[in-house]
Nucleic acid binder design. Structure first.
Lengths: 408, 408
DNA sequence: CCTGTTCGTTCAGGACGTGAACATTTGTTG
DNA sequence: CAACAAATGTTCACGTCCTGAACGAACAGG
């Protein structure tokens, strides 16, 4: 540890504050870092020389000269994210600048069965970069979101349905081609990152995100901003969680209870016929909700009447279906709460989102009857593609960490 | 950040290495910290002046002058631990020096119903310190181990059976009386700390410790050395974990499956009668094991014969009982593995220890049949009182952190 | 226009750290 | 046994970074 290193640390601290709190004057920086006036000037000078920070204006408050306002140069670095979507065979790619502004977003259809992963990703990123007007070289990190278990640091992805992506060394190949830092993570984990940054879990100490997808079930565990991955990246593989004792027969694991098809079948048994689970839930919620808020829905009287017409007989059925589903979900949540005690559980995925507040409330109620332990339950607050959003955040965080010297 | 602070950081780094790797020469220190020769000398000088480091000898390897060997002064600071044991109404107290050497260990019977917590703990620590020949003032940290949930940083303990210990502010009162840093943690968590330092989980990335106690059930989750506590300190309250679906009736939570009395009853149903669960397991293991290793047990032929005599008819019963128990335990483990994916699950507590390798093997087998996911399962490797040992480690770690300036 | 504030720079000084040179000790070797 | 090689630890000159105080300059308000 050298005096030089000391300087770097101070630079990093200042840059960190600029990244987190936006434009600042030298005075602000002085206060935040605790540095002396001349030193603050020095640090800013160095950051500007490095092309990381720019003058973006001047204050005009009070008397005395107007202080210069500094901000991180958005063009100083870029980050990219790629979401591997099995369900519609596309790579969704996004590029953002150092300020977090999304510069481009593309969707590339890929025939995973016949195309190699590495060239496909390389192409997707190249196209997105071009559209963003950014040289590929300037992208500091590419974060992949994959539907599978990704062990910490390891380069193999387990339980992937996408052909070619389960092969050892995929990530390394992609890295070699892109010549950047490339990391992969489970898509539900990335959705949780988005939930923390842009969703309902922004201020929370930690939370568990239960992904009730049409094609997959998952649990992401956020502990104060870091995700729990498990030894083989298998943390949150709740689909395999046994429910019920083995000799009892019938229901065996959580997947049998709340997978897309299980939900669809449950709905069917309550007289609600749909092609997918989340469609069934959407319909059930609309009838159940319109019943409950029927009297208050003065403005949408016409719509309400129409709904009641078609659902008159199914209103009670919808209620029963939702309650039955809530109990099933609550069984899983109860286990998670007993093991992890998260302050918040977020329901996401197609089914979770379709259930909305209606389902969340019922799950919370069911949980109270099922277990002494309880916790707050909410629905996802992320509107856009949570996986891409989360991957972009993760990617950007990595770029920032390296700029601030916290990463090698 | 000042030059002074830079010096402190280097001191801290050197001290840290001395604490972790034992006695070192200036040369070793130079290599480990990357400092220049004169600076290393300087750092050592400062550490010696602060009374933290002592010369403990000289090398005599190779040519050149013999280097001085430095080590942390064991008497530079002390740490204490107190285990609150409800089952036999005692406070077990231990004091160790900065090197980790236990200097004293006492057991004080306390009538929790009539004695206040703070004075009782104060007395216990005072006595232990005197026996260790250490002034109370020199004890830098007191770590309490309590059978209850302790939220991170909060001062209330939930779900405690010990009278007076559930009252808000207990920890603060104790702190006020002892005039030191005082923290409290769940006893199972502390047992996990001991498991990592002195037990079977020494080199592992992380592990889950399933405490199968006669009077309590718990799960400690170790993630690379830090323990997961949960929002309300309720992480690992697996006793409340629901097993089976609600309408199914009968078995409701994990506690009903593997608590001490549940184990005892299960044994009884297999014809093994004991007053406690772990006694039943001990007997079952001895018969089951002697059967399996009967031929190889040449030396203890007499003992084996005796065992076979009394167990001839119960050998099969013992096997069945152990397998049934293993399945029950495996249900809980399967859930933990699905949620957390730990590289290792350690069985501890009276029942877990009684089960030994025999039970661990059977649980591992049962798990394989129950779930796709699996993990290594082992029995606790801690011989002594794990709670006190873990509390002492935690306490010492806190003292060291403060010395190295990592803690405020 | 003067005055009090606030911004940013200049300046002298302090704390640390570094590399090179040097004295010193100690084992090896011819 | 003397010469040599290798390792230890100190001294010295110099560099980097940070600090407090003083200073000049810009700006709002009376």
């Amino acid at each position: 540890m050298d005096s030089r290193r000391l300087g770097e640390l101070n630079e990093a601290a200042a840059l960190g504050h600029l990244l987190e709190r936006g434009p600042l004057t030298r005075g602000d920086l002085r206060e935040l870092t605790g540095l002396a006036k001349p030193t603050a000037s020095d640090v800013v000078r160095r950051l500007r020389a490095a092309g990381l920070v720019r003058v973006v204006g001047r204050t005009s408050r009070g008397r005395g000269p107007n202080a210069e306002v500094y901000a991180v140069d958005p063009d100083a670095a870029f980050a990219a994210a790629v979401s591997v979507r099995a369900k519609d065979s596309t790579l969704v790619t996004a590029v953002c600048d150092l300020a977090g502004e999304v510069r481009a977003r593309t969707e590339t259809p890929v025939d995973f069965a016949h195309a190699d992963a590495a060239p496909a990703v390389h192409d997707a990123v190249r196209v997105a970069a071009r559209r963003a007007g950014v040289a590929l070289r300037r992208i500091g990190h590419v974060q992949l979101g994959v539907p599978g278990s990704v062990p910490e640091g390891a380069e193999v992805i387990h339980h992937v349905d996408v052909p070619g992506w389960g092969r050892p060394g995929v990530v390394a190949e992609i890295r070699k081609r892109l010549r950047t830092r490339v990391t992969a993570d489970n898509d539900v984990n990335l959705a949780a990152v988005a939930e923390r940054r842009h969703g309902i879990a922004s201020g929370v100490d930690g939370f568990a995100l239960l992904w009730l997808g049409e094609e997959g079930l998952g649990l992401a565990i956020d502990l104060g901003g870091t995700l729990l991955r498990g030894a083989r990246g298998g943390a949150g593989e709740v689909g395999y969680m046994p429910v019920g004792l083995p000799p009892a027969g019938g229901v065996h694991d959580f997947h049998d209870l709340v997978s897309g098809s299980a939900v669809r079948d449950l709905a069917r048994r309550h007289g609600i016929r749909s092609r997918t689970g989340h469609a069934a839930v959407t319909r059930a919620v609309s009838t159940a909700t319109s019943e409950a808020t029927g009297t208050a829905a003065g403005k949408t009287a016409g719509a309400a009447a129409r709904t009641v017409d078609t659902a008159a007989s199914t209103g009670a059925a919808a209620d029963e279906f939702l309650d039955a589903l809530a109990v099933r979900v609550a069984v899983g949540v109860a286990v998670v709460v007993a093991v992890l005690d998260p302050p918040l559980v977020v329901l996401a995925g197609e089914v979770g989102r379709a259930g909305g507040g209606t389902l969340a409330t019922r799950v919370e109620r069911a949980l109270r009857e099922l277990s002494v332990l309880h916790t707050e339950i909410a629905t996802t607050g992320v509107r856009e593609d949570a996986v891409v959003l989360g991957a972009l955040d993760t990617s950007l965080a990595s770029v920032r960490r390296r700029l601030t010297g916290l990463d090698p």
